[in-house]
Amino acid sequence: MAPGRIVFLNGTSSSGKSSIARELLNVLDDGVFFHMAVDDFNAMRTKRALEAEELDAALRRTRMGFHRSIAAMAEAGNDIVVDHVLSEPWRLLDCLTVLRPENVLFVGVRCPLDELTRREQLRGDRPPGLAAYQHTRVHAHGDYDLECDTSTATPYECALRIRDFLPHRPTPTAFTRLRHHHLPAELDDRGRQAR
């Protein structure tokens, strides 16, 4: 069975990733796609209050599990739309390690900081300043296959652009280039340590 394709949306909180993902499920018509969002994984966690150190460890395990869930779904032949915030370098490195880089279309979801701040205030369900904190960190790796600006295009327009680009993914993909740049050469073609 061929592994599934992964459309990986990376951007700050309030940048429009989830809205684009929902539109993608409606416009991608050459397969069955699943939307996997890091927020959904965070929502599954216990609701009791956790001390800072325990919370940090739980969040790291959650995100590592999320990355491996994406990989498992794709390995089973499912096409995936990922909605994630790569605001810490280790998150990208972990994804580069567990996902087949040639099957990932890496999409940067960008939005100017003033618009992110406005959206964050309207939402009211995010800590103030979260998007500003993430703004420079999320795109620090600097390499994508495709980028969308949600201040100048609607989620639907972004989804159409991604749909039209998907069959024309570059070779090598951004994930392949990033993996070669950031990970040791002894990784095999599936991202696992070569024996």
Rank of each mutant, 00 (worst) to 15 (best):
L9N: 05
L9Q: 01
L9Y: 10
L9T: 00
L9S: 04
L9D: 00
N10E: 12
N10G: 06
G11C: 07
G11Q: 04
G11N: 02
G11S: 00
T12A: 09
T12Q: 13
S13M: 08
S14D: 12
S14R: 15
S14T: 14
S14G: 03
S15M: 02
G16K: 01
G16H: 05
G16S: 05
K17C: 05
K17T: 03
K17G: 01
K17V: 03
S18R: 07
S19W: 00
I20V: 13
I20M: 06
A21D: 05
A21R: 05
R22V: 08
R22D: 07
R22L: 09
R22W: 06
R22E: 13
R22G: 08
E23I: 04
E23Q: 14
E23D: 09
L24I: 11
L24Y: 08
L24H: 01
L25S: 13
L25Y: 11
L25F: 02
L25D: 08
N26K: 15
V27T: 11
V27W: 08
L28H: 06
L28K: 07
D29K: 14
D29Y: 04
D29V: 04
D29W: 03
D29M: 08
D30N: 02
D30G: 02
D30I: 00
D30K: 03
G31A: 06
G31D: 06
G31C: 02
G31F: 05
V32N: 12
V32Q: 12
F33N: 06
F33S: 10
F33Q: 07
F34A: 14
H35F: 03
H35N: 14
H35Q: 15
H35G: 05
H35Y: 15
M36T: 03
M36F: 14
A37C: 07
A37F: 06
V38F: 13
V38N: 15
D39N: 14
D39Q: 09
D40R: 09
F41K: 09
F41H: 10
F41P: 09
N42L: 08
N42K: 10
N42P: 01
A43K: 08
A43H: 06
A43G: 07
A43V: 00
A43P: 00
M44G: 11
M44T: 14
M44C: 14
R45F: 12
R45K: 13
R45S: 09
T46A: 12
T46Q: 10
T46R: 07
K47V: 15
K47N: 11
K47Y: 05
K47A: 13
